[in-house]
Design a protein around this nucleic acid. Sequence first.
DNA 1: GTCTCGACTTAGCACCTACAGT
DNA 2: ACTGTAGGTGCTAAGTCGAGAC
Length: 706
Amino acid sequence: MGRGKELKGAEKSKHKLSKLRRASGHERAVAGGDACKASEQIKRDPEEDDADFVSKEKGRKRKRIKEEQTECPTNSSKKTKVKQDDEAFQKKKGKKKTEKKVKKEEDEPVQISKNPKRTKEDIQEAKLLKIKKKEEEEQNRWRWWEEEKYEDGVKWKFLEHKGPFFPPEYQPVPDNVHFYYEGNAVKLSLAAEEVALFFAQMLDHEYTTKDVFRENFFKDWRKEMTSEERSLIKNLNKCDFGEMHAMHKAKVEARKNMSKEEKQVQKDINQTIVEEFGFCLLDHHKEKIGNFKIEPPGLFRGRGEHPKQGMLKKRIQPEDVIINCGKESSVPVPPAGHRWKEVRHDNTVTWLASWTENIQGSIKYIMLNANSKLKGEKDWEKYEVARKLKTCVDDIRYHYNQDLKSKQMSTRQRAVALYFIDKLALRAGNEKEEGESADTVGCCSLRVEHITLHDKLEGDDFVVEFDFLGKDSIRYYNKVPIIKKVFKNLKLFMENKEPGDDLFDRLNTQMLNKHLSSLMAGLTAKVFRTYNASITLQQQLKELTNKGDNVAEMTLSYNRANRAVAILCNHQRAPPKTFEQSMANLQAKIDGRKEQLSLAKSELKQAKKEAKSKGNSDPKSQMLVERKKTAVKRCEDQLLRMELQATDREENKQIALGTSKLNYLDPRISVAWCKKYGVPLDKIYNKSQRDKFAWAIDMTEEDFEF
DNA sequence: GTCTCGACTTAGCACCTACAGT
DNA sequence: ACTGTAGGTGCTAAGTCGAGAC
């Protein structure tokens, strides 16, 4: 058990120190109280009383059985479901095609008549080509979800690819660009120069002012130097990278100012690379690779107070790379004069290439894109496990409520941890090696210093205040009223401990997950996050959707539901740098439109008056009235849309919706909702999201229940 | 039982680009 | 036609979790 009570004085003070540092540097908290309130509103109640549980259980069981009958989740049963759906598929396919055709015919004439110029025609042509491509893509789509799964562990039978794409070789700086040490120009060796340039390029960034970053960089830079260079260059503060920095900036500027043609040339080159390296052949289907490029060398940029920031991330050679491909496939050819570290044929894994990175010593992989079968199937499975949790979550809650009274300390700690993971959607919190990465925690690795207990706070009893840095050093700050049993336990766990001690000293994630998997196959801590996120979305959508709303209002409702989940999962973002400005701009536009509206209204009034005076029979004045009416209507619509947009944007200031949408929300909930309320799917999912969730889009009807 | 490592998902940020609005 | 901006995309760090070594 990691740190525990053995924590020595030095280490403790280190914790305090880092906390202090964080307090000054890390301003990006959740809008504390607000986030708390919001997450409270949306939470279901895991603290039902035992008796309550039993009485509710009967009804739940009935419901569960019904669900089991309608949906069969995992491997073995998938096939039957697919067959049942097949007829529906065929019908759907036919329908879809005709719909698309109609749409295309509508689009064409309108756009052509709008764009009479030649160049526009070219654009038009390109657009048509795009549409055509889209249709082709749709037809070529591999409907893997209709196929049978492979036996356990096998991920593919055939895999062929071109290997990863390597970044270009280092281009030395021209002779007129100098590096100076103590005011004297020094011609650096190639290796030292490359690393110096990494630093010079980042000079505008705050990173380069941090001591840790500078120290790490300098240490690694010296390793790349020749012995002469090393004996000369002993102090980073005496280095002048000014000219190199200027050269870099000029290059960036030049790239920005490239002519259209030059930009097109560049784009074409990139396109060729993508076509050659960006795809693979997996079981007779062309699949897109997610990251086919080897990560270029540079200075390591960790998140938060990372102890290794600034270290040199080394250039990867083919000799470092392991290739994985099918036995019968042609092996990718390494770059000229090089060979691979190894070529293997392991079809129990999904990666195409891998290498070991030098900062943490971890393995990096080349893998498929999110829209691939391999990723999609896993994703589907993930949501099925979460849905399975839905059927037994009440039992599990009942049991951890019981466990809060256990005589075994470790059981109690497990129960409290589970309570947090369930109620607050905390991450599991694996132990981390100290000094290897930023000091961040999750549930099981919480320390005493991360929580404060309040017997009473702001009108609530038994409040626990969380304040810690989670994944990516994002601050989690929340004040949550909890049940008395948990509160008392926390007090007990904190007794005789120092701030830097583990809160759950008898618990770790392995123990927790082992317990969970005994309760339900496939259950781990993170399933709770998926489950609570998805169930929250479904509930929120039910609550927030108004039948008669237009599409813009519907979208706002969806975003709000999405937002509730993002707040629950603490998905934050830095407010966009231009936020205040763009908000003000939007407000100005709204004001302008308001004026326009009142003007249009008075014009309408005037027109009506005139029409009346002419006895309501004059066709000209009647027409004018109609025209003014539509003008008013249009103004009103636009105003409403802008106001909705403003609300949405304001509420979204520090919240990132993307992460939950992409990783936690069962796409079938969204698809069903769109179908039910006639909201076009592209209002919710963009192109790549629709690709990723193709399986869900295809199989979901409007009555889907998570 | 504990530790380590491999494989995979989840995460936010920095660009880039397409498009709406003037 | 121009420009500001939001949204999309690429990138890669940072988690989770299971399996196998010890």
